[in-house]
Amino acid sequence: MIPSAFDYYAPKTVAEAVALLREYGEQAKVLAGGQSLLPLLKLRLASPRVVVDLGRIADLAYIRREGEEVAIGAMTRHEEVERSDVVRQYCRLLAATAATIGDVQVRNRGTIGGSLAHADPAGDFPAAVLALEGRMKVVGPDGERWIAAEDFFLDVMTTALKADEILTEVRVAVDGEGARSAYEKIRQKATGFALCGVAVRLRVDEAKVCQDVAVGVTGVGAKAYRARAVEEALRGKEVTEAAIASAAAEAVQGVEPNEDAQASAAYRAHLARVCTRRALSRALAGS
């Protein structure tokens, strides 16, 4: 519970922050809401030489509609995502997901950018952002670039962010006509992290034929992933409970489910199927 010494920087702009990262590279860690980094520091599991706190950068916490997208600043707290009218109106899945994260204290501190950039294999937001086919705005020394959610998460706590880049914004498409969604989660009892979490976005026509579907799964593998096989099984088909059940059976296709003291690989795989089915059913039942 006693961190090693580090130099603390609180830049006022993203450019200053990037300059610091450029200078210190792998020796620096970015601090957002601190819900993962601070415990790691206290346990000395992370001992960076430099901590770059994004908390003083004025324009990183916002939620606004930008054309056909909702743009959320990286420093936006989970609680703000959960309660935002813009989110609730245009991309409800994010609000539903935010509401399940940790507890009130965690949601008041933790940020969406921190959650995505930390890429905890059991984090909640990665599943939702994958299901919403979101994209990340990343700023580095050479300016900004956009990374699609699916290209962002590489492996356990490993993203496509370079050591001198900062995630500044995430964007997701505005819910279209008839968009339905749900986030279904089984909590790891001790932490509230997802033992399994499945985010679903679904659009069906009047005949209940699936026009569009995306499924993001977290907590199961080394990273959050798109359950493509589930999507394939539904796309263009009539979405019935039977169709959902058979599609959900594909939830861990091509993934090696994780095993640890909290759950075996077999149980995780099972939960992924159950949560996928429940999320799809709930999405279908909603409107």
Binding site: A190, T191, A261
Partner: peptide, 16 residues
């Protein structure tokens, strides 16, 4: 000790 911290040892919370 694999249950050596409160992230791996689950104690009941109000919601439980």
């Amino acid at each position: 000790l694999l249950s050596g911290d409160l992230s791996s040892y689950a104690v009941p919370r109000a919601a439980d």
